[in-house]
Amino acid sequence: MARTTTPLTNTQVKQSKPTDKRQKLSDGGGLQLWISPNGSKSWMLDYIHPITKKRLSMSFGIYPAVSLADARKKRAEAKELIANGIDPKEHREDQSRLQELTNSHTLQTVASDWFEIKKSKVAETTSKSLWRNFDKHLFPKLGHRPIDKFNPKRSSALKLSFDIGI
C-alpha cells in the first residue's frame, strides 16, 4: 500500500533550513523540495518513464521563483503527460527546441536569405541601396521579431515592401 504524505504548506517551505546533507521534503505525488547544504531550494518531480519504466527526476525550478502552487500545477501537467504516454522531460526539451527554432527565424535572417538570391538579379547599386534601407529602417525595430509573428495586412513596413516589388 502506498504511503500517504501530508502536503507541504507555504510556511514549512519558507521556514525550512539547510543542514550539512541534502534534505528532501515531500509534498506527495512525486513532488519534492530539495534543500541543498548551501541553502538553495529546488522543486523536483520523481516519476516513472512511461515507456522504459525507469525512475527519473525532473526539476521545476528554484524556490521562491517557483512557488508551491506553481510547482503543484507543473506536477499536475507532468502527470497528465505521463498518463498519455509522454515523458514530460522530453516534452519540455522538444518545446524549448521548437521555441528556439521559431526564434531563430527572425525577419532579419529571412530577409538576409532572400537578399542573397535577390542581389544577383538586380544591379549592385540597387542591392546596396535596398540593404542599406533594410538596415536603417526595418531591422532596428522589426529585425529581431520571429517571422511567424507578422501579419502582412497589419504591418505597413511589409506592405510597403510588397507594394514596391522587393
Rank of each mutant, 00 (worst) to 15 (best):
R3I: 14
P7G: 11
V13Y: 00
Q15T: 15
K17W: 02
T19E: 13
T19F: 07
Q23L: 15
Q23T: 11
K24S: 15
G28R: 00
G29A: 10
G29D: 10
I35R: 02
S36T: 12
P37T: 00
N38D: 14
N38M: 12
K41I: 08
S42D: 11
S42H: 13
M44D: 08
L45P: 04
Y47N: 02
K54C: 00
R55Y: 00
R55H: 05
R55K: 06
L56W: 05
M58F: 00
S59C: 06
G61N: 04
Y63G: 11
P64S: 02
V66I: 14
S67E: 06
S67H: 05
A69P: 00
D70I: 10
D70W: 02
R72K: 09
R72W: 08
R75A: 01
A76D: 13
I82A: 01
I82S: 00
A83K: 11
I86C: 05
P88I: 04
P88D: 05
D94E: 14
R97W: 03
Q99D: 12
Q99R: 10
L101F: 04
N103Y: 06
S104Y: 04
S104H: 05
H105L: 15
H105P: 02
T106Q: 03
T109Q: 07
T109A: 07
S112T: 13
S112K: 08
E116D: 14
K118Q: 09
K118T: 04
K119N: 03
S120P: 00
E124C: 06
E124V: 12
K128I: 06
K128W: 01
W131A: 06
R132S: 14
R132H: 14
N133F: 10
F134A: 12
D135T: 10
L138I: 15
K141L: 12
G143P: 08
H144G: 11
D148G: 10
K149N: 14
S155Q: 09
S155E: 11
S156P: 01
A157F: 04
K159L: 13
L160K: 08
L160Y: 09
S161Y: 08
S161H: 05
F162G: 00
I164V: 13
